[in-house]
Design a protein around this nucleic acid. Structure first.
Lengths: 195, 195
DNA sequence: ATATAATGCAAGCACTTACTTACATTACGG
DNA sequence: CCGTAATGTAAGTAAGTGCTTGCATTATAT
């Protein structure tokens, strides 16, 4: 049981890579083992089951508490500056866990529900934080909107859409278009919400 | 070959229903036949292959020319009114083909590329139409933005995100939250872009 | 009423997949 | 250097999958 860290990791990484491209059902244990440069039996000795293998991978999906901390500590209560920071952090987190999110998105009939819950946690959390922020800004007379929750949703969905439409799909892509989008969209929201 | 329309349709509908939930790989031909109330052999006699069955289903994905016609005929050159119409039409089209889009989104290693292309056609098309519209509105001094293409993308991704996050996932849902979102988000964009 | 086409049924085939077992080989720390 | 743990190799199992075949049954149209 004293896992050779390196071997387990190689298998996990290979599984994540393949499954994020071909889905859980479409990826075989033989493929994973081959991609990891390891015998298929070793895979089963480490994880017992294909499903447990993926669950282990998702366990490493450490939900970033970054967002909570950001909302507690780093906000300047200046709309444009804050939205920019929020959007950039959002994409950083999503990007870091991109492959796992893709796996959850593709889904499968034989996948434990826990995985989908984990994948949906971050967006729901952000929606709440953002709604509260906008409400507080309204009380400071620094934001004007008829419906802070819907405004928060709009901002979230815009970034969600940008992420899943593969804006930053390539591995070490230059990220320039992403930055352009973030700046332009934040400018738009700031202008719309400023009283 | 003179297909009994009703039988073929039952099979196609069952396939779309199941695959949109469990993915192409996760759905068996036996299941499809059972859900259609038909013998599995009948399925193969009609479509020959599981893959050809899905391709036939996608052939019914009649890409709505509605959008093009809308941009040619129905625009009032009044920002708020036009964005509202565009957003509503977008969600109408997406919703009509929701299940097929879900199948493409889940994907599979053994799915013909044609299917993904078809699924991506509508968003790309809308982006172009919307960019051109915003540019024209700028020339009329009715819209102000530094980057019409990015603005179009932002609007598109926002609606794309709202759609895929399952805002309207339930079959005959009341659609009230969707309407709320559309109105609030259009108001926001109109305010941001009005000079 | 009879020919023709569409469907059902039972069985099976060829192949893949997740997973197992038994045994040989290597790596490695005390 | 030796014992133990980790890995490789080969073979196989049980179940599931897409798909086929042969034949019986039902519907439909002329």
């Amino acid at each position: 049981m004293n896992d050779n860290q390196s071997t387990s990791d190689k298998i996990l990484m290979a599984a994540i890579d393949l499954m994020s491209e071909k889905g859980y059902d479409g990826t075989t244990t033989k493929e994973i083992a081959a991609a990891a440069g390891v015998n298929e039996v070793t895979l089963f000795r480490h994880f017992g089951t294909k499903q447990k293998l993926l669950e282990t991978a998702f366990h490493r999906y450490h939900y970033a508490e970054e967002m909570t901390k950001l909302f507690q500590e780093s906000l300047k209560w200046e709309l444009h500056t804050d939205l920019l920071l929020i959007s950039r952090t959002y994409h950083k987190i999503m990007n870091r866990n991109r492959k796992l999110l893709y796996i959850a998105q593709k889904g499968s009939s034989s996948l434990p529900q826990e995985i989908y819950q984990e994948a949906g946690r971050h967006p729901r959390h952000l929606r709440n934080l953002l709604t509260n922020y906008l409400t507080a800004m309204m009380e400071k007379n620094k934001v004007m909107t008829a419906n802070p929750e819907m405004t928060a949703m709009s901002f979230m969905w815009m970034n969600y859409g940008a992420f899943y439409s593969g804006l930053n799909a390539k591995g070490a892509s230059p990220d320039q278009p992403l930055d352009d989008f973030i700046e332009e969209s934040v400018r738009l929201f700031a202008r719309a919400l400023t009283p």
